[in-house]
Design a protein around this nucleic acid. Structure first.
Lengths: 330, 330
DNA sequence: GTGAAAGCGCTAACAA
DNA sequence: TTGTTAGCGCTTTCAC
């Protein structure tokens, strides 16, 4: 705690009015004269009065704190997510309590406990990769919104990216460039992201009047080294002129494979990634065209839902579209 | 706020004892009988009693909230920093309020204001890159600790990485590999990091009995594309067998330059980076040997200093060493 | 339009 | 050892 801080009573006393008058004035309630209000505001500023959020919450039986529990904090996406959430919260006079955790579905019990003790108005749970999670039981009667994940039972509102639309965008970038012998290096098929991205990809090809050759859709682990082997085999075998990599790290491995095979990007081979993981996509040579995961927007919408949650708790899934980011690899 | 929650009075009433007895029992104060304490704890658990952090802070004139203001949230380092800070805070019953901001030296005034209104016990300011900052005036009488940055006036305690020792480690990795024609691609010389890393690098060479050829230390922008040009010129000109890149992104550009020049890593050329930016260092082929910025440790120490700050505010600079991370590029 | 007064949930003297 | 009693700083009826 800072030294003895200026309280509302101090302001009231110096002005010779009651505490409630000060409270009303500061909170813009109707029942104060314009003049009183101005005097109060001036005096408060002069004294360096700063409301005590805890006391206010106690008395008013309401809170301005919201919690964010996430594993995403250790990824470059965190910035966008948090920025999006803060954008909304701050715009509405709320504060954000953050707990980083290795696994959001089993967060350190203490992080949840701490938020609950602070009587947060709601909790946002966000994950690094799109998946189903079990909401911790302790959160039973607290508004919760899931971001980039969803609960298996569909009982909680959830904000997820439109993987399918993203996959479509990726394919369209390749098609627009005139590529016709297009392959996809997908993530393991059990991932939600893999399923959606592939579906979109296939739909776009079909819509363009092309047939889907099952052999042109291969699977890789999420990391570049695994992708390198898969990509190398794929590129060496067929004559492919465009490949959609289900994430940017796979694209990174594919770059290396292409180079080792003497293929120039984008002259001989166009590549599109997914995720828009900036430290990779921007720095690859040539810079990688990709599809972004809309973390900022998801964070903002999540925050919005949470502050509204008290009114009407919807339990819908909100789908946010993934914007294509054109760089130089197509 | 959750529904009407269980209060201390509820517990006391059901047990037929006073509120203070409950308070003492729950807070492990001496003045309760063992038996009463146990009954209280059992009843509290049964009722699902959860202390109200705000009320407790109000009554006890102390807070368990601490703030973190940082721009680092948008980088992969954030995870380590926050994990380190939380590790300490949670271990000591404190909570962390986080504000992401584009520029920590001029944080959104509201983020600071919000923390102050919550009467945080102290604020940690952390930056993405090591530099001097001006601590916002509003923080005048609040304990502050600077992490990965420092204030020009030296009035605030600050935790910084040992850039010089890190530079030395980098050079030593190269020397240990038997490299003798070693160059350094440095960051712009006005950066604290650039100065320290270079100093360490030079000292290591001198200690190894080598002369410093000024021409072998060149400067690059922090990004791969700028580094590519610099590295290409450097490698094309001299016959160099080892290069220390002042950050991992520079190393990334250097990889490309080396490859385009037909140089194999590490056979023909050993490369060492700095920062241990995982999405880059781990994924490069071959994986990049580098020196890590100890964000986790810095976060932990910062938190520690902050919770102790009330007792004795030291205004020293604490220097944390940067551990070398050996991978396959040397 | 303004003030008095009753809490919000908890801690910490002080008495018993 | 236990209970009584003030507050902590603020909001919010309810009279005036």
């Amino acid at each position: 705690m800072t030294k003895r801080s200026v309280t509302m009573s101090d302001v009231a006393r110096q002005l010779g009015i009651s505490r409630s008058a000060v409270s009303f004035a500061l909170n813009n309630e109707a029942q104060v004269s314009r003049e009183t209000r101005e005097r109060v505001i001036a005096k408060a500023a002069e004294l360096g009065y700063r409301p005590n959020a805890g006391a206010r919450a106690l008395a008013g039986q309401k809170t301005d704190l919201f919690g964010l529990v996430t594993d995403i904090v250790s990824t470059p996406f965190a910035g966008d997510l948090i920025a999006g959430a803060q954008e909304w919260f701050w715009g509405h006079g709320k504060s954000l309590l953050i707990a980083g955790t290795a696994t959001p579905e089993r967060p350190d019990a203490r992080s949840i406990e701490m938020m609950l003790e602070h009587r947060v108005g709601g909790i946002m749970i966000a994950t690094t990769w799109n998946r189903a999670i079990d909401v911790p039981a302790a959160l039973e009667n607290v508004p919760v919104v899931l971001v980039h994940c969803f609960d298996a039972l569909g009982e909680r509102p959830s904000i997820i990216p439109d993987e399918e639309q993203g996959g479509r965008e990726a394919a369209q970038m390749l098609l627009a460039r005139g590529r016709r012998r297009i392959a996809m290096i997908n993530l393991p098929e059990d991932l939600v992201a893999a399923q959606g991205r592939r579906l979109g990809f296939e739909k776009a090809l079909v819509a363009a009047g092309m047939a889907i050759d099952p052999a042109s859709i291969v699977t890789s682990g999420p990391e570049p080294d695994s992708a390198y082997d898969v990509a190398r085999a794929l590129l060496a075998a067929g004559d492919i002129d465009g490949v959609f990599c289900a994430n940017d790290r796979i694209a990174m491995g594919t770059y290396d494979a292409a180079r080792d095979l003497g293929l120039r990007i984008p002259e001989d081979l166009s590549i599109v990634g997914f995720d828009n993981q900036e430290t990779i996509a921007k720095y690859l040579r040539p810079a990688l065209s990709t599809v972004a995961l809309p973390f900022r927007e998801m964070g903002r919408r999540g925050a919005e839902l949470l502050t509204r949650a008290s009114e009407d708790i919807d339990r819908k899934k909100i789908v946010i579209s993934c914007p294509p980011i054109a760089r130089n690899s197509v």
